[in-house]
Computed example of a mutant assay.
Amino acid sequence: MEGRLLIVILVSLSSWLSAGLTHVQPDFNDVTRNLERHHRIKDVQCPDPQDILPCVCIYEDVSDGLVLDCSQVQDEEQLAEIFLADFPSKTFQVLNIINNTGLRLLEDGVFQDISFSEIYIQNSALEEVRDDALSSSFSTVNVLNFQDSQVFSFPFHRLQEFTILHSLYFERNTLHYLSILVSSSLKRLYLSENPLGTATGDTFKNLTVIAVINLDSTLITELIPGVFDELEMLQELSLVMNHISLVPTGAFNLTFSTAPSVRIDLASNNIDKVEEGAFSERKMWPAEEQHQPAVHLVHVQMSLGLKNKNISTD
């Protein structure tokens, strides 16, 4: 104990003497980081504020990029006019259009050549997103969030062109139909509280890295076997508060899964029968190394909304 205390005192004394005799040397790593940040800020410049009113552009330290807020835009015409202005920087981190009641349509090419990494159009009157409305961000956007809007039309058939999109939020909109979804990047898909009805067998099968699908309150009445097959990375599937009464054989075939566990939530439905083989899971995965015990690959956690507690799941 005494030895440790002595070391601390000596180090402190040495530091004090050094400070008195020499100048403190700069931390060149800090200098380099500050220079790099300065150059980034210099490289990313906002447009003239007067040219993009009522949009507002700021540099945000948290995201280390430009944020464009167009929440006060009046209509489609004004939004299109704003993006005809001179934008010194073409790459933005975030686009926000929040609590907007004037914008109902995103026209083809509305953002010109300006791209975004994250787009949030929430609690809005937006109803339709045209096929090429987001084309300038096909290769840059990783989050699309349209929560609490009125969207009934979105180019889902072009989903694969969003090459790094990993999260798509459409909770509480008015989507009635999903085309076949194709993506090698999408990991999270939230579609709760849309009047979708029953999904077809091919709707999700081409989402090759999907981990989370939320279909709560989407008016699903029937589980069609095969809809959730071949989703190797699936970890969570939520079907809460629908109108499902039967879980048929083959409804959830998880023999393809490579995830360590899969949570399937069917709470708050009207289920009165679960057929034998409704949940097919691959129980064991051969060990990669000799003498190493095999591990459980898939453990299904079920939350069933059963009408009758005495229902048999044969």
Rank of each mutant, 00 (worst) to 15 (best):
E81Q: 11
E81M: 07
E81T: 12
E81N: 08
I82D: 09
F83Q: 02
F83E: 09
F83R: 00
L84W: 03
L84I: 07
A85T: 03
P88N: 10
P88Y: 06
P88W: 05
S89Y: 05
S89E: 14
K90A: 11
K90E: 15
T91S: 12
T91E: 15
T91G: 04
F92V: 11
V94Q: 09
V94D: 11
L95F: 05
L95G: 03
N96S: 08
N96K: 10
I97W: 01
I97F: 02
I97A: 07
I98T: 13
N99A: 12
N99R: 09
N100W: 00
G102M: 00
G102E: 00
L103W: 00
L105N: 14
E107Y: 01
E107R: 08
E107G: 01
E107M: 09
G109V: 06
V110C: 00
V110G: 05
F111L: 01
F111V: 03
Q112H: 10
D113C: 03
D113T: 13
D113S: 12
F116S: 04
F116I: 10
S117F: 02
S117Y: 05
E118W: 06
E118D: 15
Y120T: 12
Y120W: 13
I121D: 03
Q122P: 08
N123T: 13
N123Q: 13
A125V: 07
A125N: 01
L126R: 01
L126V: 07
V129E: 04
V129N: 06
R130C: 14
R130G: 08
R130N: 14
D131S: 13
D131M: 11
D131C: 08
D131V: 15
D132V: 05
A133H: 02
L134C: 02
L134D: 01
L134E: 02
S135W: 00
S135A: 06
S136Y: 03
S136P: 02
S137V: 01
S137F: 03
S137W: 01
S137G: 02
S137R: 06
F138I: 01
S139A: 12
T140N: 06
T140H: 08
N142G: 08
V143W: 06
L144Q: 01
L144D: 02
N145G: 10
F146T: 07
F146L: 06
F146E: 12
Q147C: 10
Q147R: 14
D148S: 12
S149K: 05
S149R: 05
V151L: 00
V151T: 10
V151Y: 02
V151G: 03
F152H: 14
F152L: 12
F152G: 12
S153K: 14
S153D: 15
F154V: 10
F154I: 13
P155K: 13
P155I: 15
F156K: 10
F156P: 14
H157F: 13
L159G: 00
L159R: 04
Q160P: 10
E161C: 07
E161Y: 05
E161G: 04
F162V: 07
T163W: 05
T163F: 05
T163H: 06
T163S: 04
I164D: 06
L165K: 05
L165C: 08
S167D: 13
S167N: 09
L168A: 00
L168M: 10
Y169K: 09
